[in-house]
Each structure stands twice: as C-alpha cells, then as structure tokens.
Design a protein around this nucleic acid. Sequence first.
DNA 1: TTGCGCTCCGAAACCGGTTTCGGTTAGCGT
DNA 2: ACGCTAACCGAAACCGGTTTCGGAGCGCAA
Lengths: 356, 356
Amino acid sequence: MSSKPVSLKVLAAHLGLTVGTVSRALNGYADISPATRKRVQTAAKELGYRPNQNARRLSIGSPETVGYLMPRLNHSGSQPFIAQLLQGLGEALGKRHWDLLVTHADSSQDELAHIERLVRSGRVGGLVISRPLKNDPRIRLLQDLKFPFVVHGRTASCDNYAWYDVDGEDAFVTAVNHLVALGHSRIAFVGAPLQHQFAQDRLNGYQTAIKANGLPLDPDLIQIAEFSDDGGEMATNLLLDFAQPPTAVVCISDTVALGALAALRARGLRPGIDVSVIGYDGLKFGNHSNPPLTTMAQPQAHAGRRLGDMLLAIIDGDDPAMHQELQRAQLLRRKTDGPLHCAKAQQDISKREEIQ
Amino acid sequence: MSSKPVSLKVLAAHLGLTVGTVSRALNGYADISPATRKRVQTAAKELGYRPNQNARRLSIGSPETVGYLMPRLNHSGSQPFIAQLLQGLGEALGKRHWDLLVTHADSSQDELAHIERLVRSGRVGGLVISRPLKNDPRIRLLQDLKFPFVVHGRTASCDNYAWYDVDGEDAFVTAVNHLVALGHSRIAFVGAPLQHQFAQDRLNGYQTAIKANGLPLDPDLIQIAEFSDDGGEMATNLLLDFAQPPTAVVCISDTVALGALAALRARGLRPGIDVSVIGYDGLKFGNHSNPPLTTMAQPQAHAGRRLGDMLLAIIDGDDPAMHQELQRAQLLRRKTDGPLHCAKAQQDISKREEIQ
DNA sequence: TTGCGCTCCGAAACCGGTTTCGGTTAGCGT
DNA sequence: ACGCTAACCGAAACCGGTTTCGGAGCGCAA
C-alpha cells in the first residue's frame, strides 16, 4: 500500500478546519452550517476520504462486527449451506455497514477458550454459532458472559436465547406419515450420533410418527451411523441383512440417503420400488442421484439473513428469547418413494397384522 | 455484555504500575525485570485480560485482518469450495493471529467501489479474490492501489500478481486424450460463458487436445451454456440433435456434467456406454450420480491455506510475482467414460478416416 | 564520597477517529 | 450603541492500546 490513506487530519488541513469540525460535518451534526457541510463533503469525496474503521470503532466503542464460528468440516454434511448462510449474513449486516468475521477453533477442545478470547478482545459485538450440541457448552458460556449471540439450530432446552431452526421433528413425522400412507409399515431410520440436537430431533420425529400410526417401535430399525454417505451405506446394509428388512428408510440427511441408495442398488434393489428412501435437506444435487432422491426440503434461503437481523436486534437491546424462529421442511417428491407392492413386503405386513 | 472487559488501565491500577509498563511487560520488552514481568503475567491471566484489538490495531497500524470477497452465488457452481477455502484461509491466518473478514458486493457494478472502500477504511491488510474474469478490473484496481492481494484463479495475463490455480487447460487435454485413447473421435465440449478465465482455459485445453490428436475442430461440438445443471442439459440436448452427434462430452464442471447425464438418460442413451461424459471438479457427490461421474478432480484441500500463506508473505513484503502456484487435476475414473463401441459411432469413425 | 553507568519503570506522545464543552461571531431587538 | 441569543466552529478529552524518551534508583569503582 503506497499512497497512504487520507486521514481526517489531512482533510481538515486541506479545508482549513479542525478535525473535530470535519468529523461532525460528515456525521451530520446540527451545529455545522449547511455551507461548510457541503464543502466538507465534496472535499471528502474528492480526496477519497474513508474513516479508519479501527479508530472509529475504538472511539465509538463498538466493533461493528459479528463473528461466525465455522463448524468443523470433518463430517462432510455441513458444507452445502455455509456459502448461502454467509451470503445471507453478509446481506443483513451490510445494511448497517457491519462486518462479518469468520473464525474456527483449532480443535473442539479449545473452542470455549477461542470464544472467550474473541469476546473479550472486542473484535466482535455478537456471535453466530451453528449446529449446537444437545447441551452445548458454548451457549452456556455466552450466556454467562451475557454476550449477544444467535444459534443456527437448537439445543434440548431452547429457552432464553435466540435461534433459527427448521423443525426436524415435524419433518420426520411428515416423512413417516407419507410412507405409511403409501402402505409401508416396516420403516427404518438411519441417523447420526445423538450429541447434536438435530440428530435427536429427527429421531424423535420418527419415533413419534411410528407410534402415532400404531406401528411397533422396532429398535433394530433405528440405526445410528456416521454422518456421511458411507455411514448411510453401512447402516442400510445392516438393515437389509435382517430377516425382515424394512421396506422404507428415512435418512437424517440427503448425504446419508445417497449412501442408502448405493447400498440398495448394490443388492439389486430398486429404490422407490422395492425400498423407499427419503432424505432430508433438499439439496439440488438430489435431482441427479440414482434415482432422484425424495427428500424433506428445508428453506435454507434466508436463514442467514434472518440470523443476521436477529443478532443485530439483540445487540440493540432486544430480549433474545423474543427471537426464535422455526421453519418447516416440505416433502419434495422425486423418485425414491413409492407404494408398497413387492411380494415379500406384503408378507411382512400380513404377519404384523396377525400379531396384532 | 455486562461485565466490562478488563482494560490495560485497570490491570495497571490493580498492579500499582502504569499502563505503559504493563504493556511492555506483556509484549516481552527487555527493560522489564523478570520479577515484575512474572507478576504482570499472572495478574493478566487471573483477571482474564485480553487486549482490545481495535485499539491495538489502531496503534500498531495494522488491521491484522485480511478480507475474502465472496463470489456472487447466482451460478450455483461456486458453492462447494467456499467452505473448504475459508477453513484453509482461517488456518493459515490463525497461525499469526490474523482475522478473516468475509464480504461481498451488493451488485457486480459497485464491486470496485466496495473494494476501494474496504482498502481505504483500513479494515483489511490484504484481500483474497476468487474467479477472476479474463481481464478483471478488480485486479487492476488493487494493483493501482498497490494493495496486497492474491487470486484464486488466473486472468489471461497472469503476471505481476500472486495466484493459486488448477491448470484447467492441462486437465482438459488429459480428459480429451483419455477419450481419444478410448476410441472416441467426435468429442464435444460443454462450456460456460467465456468472461471467466477458467472457462476460456478449459476450452483452450479442449481445442488444443483435439488438434493435437489430429481431429477436426467442429464448431458445432463446442457449446457454451449457462453454468449450471440445466445449462448442461440444454447444451447436451442440442448436441444430440445433430445429424452426427458426439460420442463423448467433456463438461466444464461436474454440475454441468450432471445435466449432460440427465439429457442422455432422457433419450435412453447410457452414459459411459453409448456416450461418454467427463466432468471437472471431483465433487464427492459425483459418486452418487447416475451413473457415477468420471471427472477431473482438482486438489482443493489446501488451496485456502496456500492462499493465506501467500498473502501473508506478500504483506510482509514479498514480491507477488514470486507466489504463483499451479496445481494439476487428476483423472478420476468412475462410470461415465468408456470405449467407443456402438455401431453408429463406428460409422462416424470410418467416415472420418476416409476423409483424412 | 563522588561519579559513572546500568537497570527498571513512569510520563507522555501517538494512532485516527468521536464527542463534549466553551467561546467567538453574527444577527437581532431596543 | 449595547446586550442578548443563537449559530457555528475550535480546543481538548477520550477510546485502549504501543512505543519512545528520560529520569530515578541502584551498585560499583575510583
């Protein structure tokens, strides 16, 4: 950077005014005559004056910046929405000329230390965190610090803080009901480790719907696997090895569902005909899977913007508990769901009815 | 934020020292006795002192922050990398305790104004930009401002600035050669609008390889479409409507290639048997397309870290031209490439040989 | 004892803005 | 001509750090 940025001082010298006057002129104070204000403004534009944000923020006592804590990308499932989320956050913050700082902890161990450092260093005035655990220590820490934050997702007890989430429980109720309406009764669930609340929510939805439909809750049909396509494939293989394999599988994510499809195809089973599969997320990519994946599509479009607006409102003093937004996912039928009609499955149904 | 952060002033008062002394003690100056240094350090740890970064950065004259200009997400092809890229950038910057600021211009028109504001406001000490155009005004602007920056990708004349890129030309030479080795001679290219240099590079690679293999350069076989799955599908439909349709298609991205696969399947053509398709990117998702997509996989893993390291080095004074890194993509064979063997294609080949 | 140098810390300027406070000037009425 | 008020701007404190400079206090040798 060669040409040093023009500071308030040189602008003032150039105008024959003091820095204080120039500052007030640019910031719209009433005790500046319209004439000089105009003069200052044009001079500022000519010289390309931009206030040094570090100085400004130090002075006004606000960092005018919020931080986003990137989730660790070990599990490949979290990548698709980050770009959209950041874009939305950026839009919301941009309206007030706030900045977006993106950070990630080096390891999950020192994530708390990372947050505390971030907060106390005054670099950010608020924080956005993603994918909370059931009982997330980050949330407790931020509450203890009384620091403004919003959560993309929810914990088990979701009171007293702001969050934006898609109702995973409701989504899986919808998915299961849909499969039941298609005639399925042996419906399996392929999930992910339950430390994340979203995994628990979706499992809850599955269980609720199974019971509500008067179906037996077979523990064999609940498989907790790695949150990836490989995990979905392995879990589905286990399911298919049972004496009475399921005729339908709901998967915790589209990525996992793709693994399930792979397992089915490897055995010559036709997804959507022999075994139905429903995913969750609504990724565009599901259009191109083999066959195209039926899924519960979540409205990811303005999650970022909503979270940004919430956070700014909270920083302005709003009660965080006021800002809790639950969206619903919608069934997006493509080609992996279909009516029960293979002979073997019919057998299973009749057996179940005898037992009842 | 209730409990006000402990400043240098209160820490000094608590110790009976002056702020200057405490600051020097914490920053390792030699003119502080080991005894008081120890005393200051333990007190700082006890009180949880964290220097206010805005004040610190104002004082030392460095923002200790670099900015990343998010590409606009209109074309859905750019999303997959962003998360990985940001993660890598964060790692590189974190080693020196620098921050990462993520911004995006509201519209492409005022992107230049956005950059200038960013630079002059002193919020960032360097910039990372993605997906340059052939002749990118952003790069010219940053060069004029003599501001440190690195580019993820290249422009047509890639001198005098730092970049990290994957050799798209080489990749498409490899892809075409591979198809020729499989017996194909009518090989089509489905590209994207050429304002982006990467689109031009890949087209160049295609053309170079076609010529190098002594094949005719049929303009009909070069289709420029929208950079999306739909674009790929439409372009492929056009290709298949020709009297002599291609027996193989190389696509500018995996997303576009998925559209090509869809077009083939819609006509009952079997990708990899009747018509070969090769994509570019190496997205994991290609494992699950129908059938799994053969592609030129680029090593995206440490792009972010390399770009971050480069940028820091340039900010430290390195000549940008020293930092230019070109990676190669590798052919990742899955199921959409195969030998030429259908009757119609054989005809085409014999015709071509007669002409020669 | 005086003088010298060295160790260690205090004082103050500075980074570039914002904001309060006080004083000068102009304009007005009488 | 005088006083009063309001408009307008200068001066200075302040935000919370960093860094330079100078001086107090000490030990040591002469």
